Computed example of a mutant assay.
Amino acid sequence: MQLMPDSPLRRVALEVEAHVAAEGWDQPPRLFALVSTADLIAREPALADQLSAEPDSITPVEQELSSERELEDLLTEIEWPDAVAGCAAVVERIMLPPDAEESLPEDPDELLAAVAAHPDRREVRLVAAVTRDGRAHSTVRAREPADAELLEGPDLVPGLIEHLRRTLA
C-alpha cells in the first residue's frame, strides 16, 4: 500500500535510492542534478529510447564529487545552472536514538569514537531530493536488517534538504 502521494519528484528520489542501493553499502556521498526529461530529450534526442516518456518526469544525472571534502561543505559552493530543475544527494550516516545525545562528549574526536561504539547506533542511507519550486522528498533506509523497510516522506532529512535548497537559490 502506497502512503505517499506519487509525483515525479517522489519517483526520482526512489529511483536514485534504488540505483545507489544496488551498489551496496559503504559508498561515498553521491550528488545528482535533476533535469526535466522532456528538456533532456529535446537537447539529446538519441536518449529518447532510454528515458521515461511520462510528460512531467525528472531524470537524475550523477555529478562527480571530490572525495577530499564533506558533501555538506561542497554544497556551500555549488550553484546549478537554470537548466537544472532540482538536485538530489545520497549519504550514509550513523544515527543514534534521541536519548543518547545527552551523554555524548563535545570533543569531535571523542564524539566520533563514542558514536562508533554506541550499542544502539544504526547505519542508514539518506536520500534527499529538492526542486527549485521548493518541493522535497526524502528516504531513509537502515543497513540492518538486510530487508529494512524504506521510509519516505517530504521532510525526513531536513538538514540535508536545506543544504540542497541553498544550491538552487
Rank of each mutant, 00 (worst) to 15 (best):
D147I: 00
W25N: 08
L74A: 13
E54H: 07
W25I: 05
I94Y: 12
A100N: 02
R30Q: 09
L74S: 13
I58S: 10
R132S: 01
E44W: 01
A42F: 03
S66E: 04
R69Q: 15
D56L: 15
I78T: 14
R121N: 10
P29T: 15
A142T: 13
D56T: 02
A21V: 02
V84P: 04
L164W: 01
A46P: 07
L47K: 03
T76A: 04
W80F: 10
G24R: 08
I94E: 06
V124F: 13
E64M: 12
A129R: 00
F32I: 13
E152M: 08
P5I: 04
D155A: 13
S67D: 10
E70D: 12
S103M: 04
P154N: 07
L3P: 01
L160P: 00
A136G: 14
R11M: 06
E15C: 15
L40F: 01
S57P: 09
P145M: 04
P97W: 05
T59I: 00
L111P: 08
V124R: 10
E110H: 03
H19K: 13
D120F: 06
A100R: 14
R132G: 08
V16K: 00
E70W: 10
V130H: 00
R143L: 08
D73L: 11
E92L: 13
E68Q: 10
E101S: 09
P81C: 12
T131Q: 03
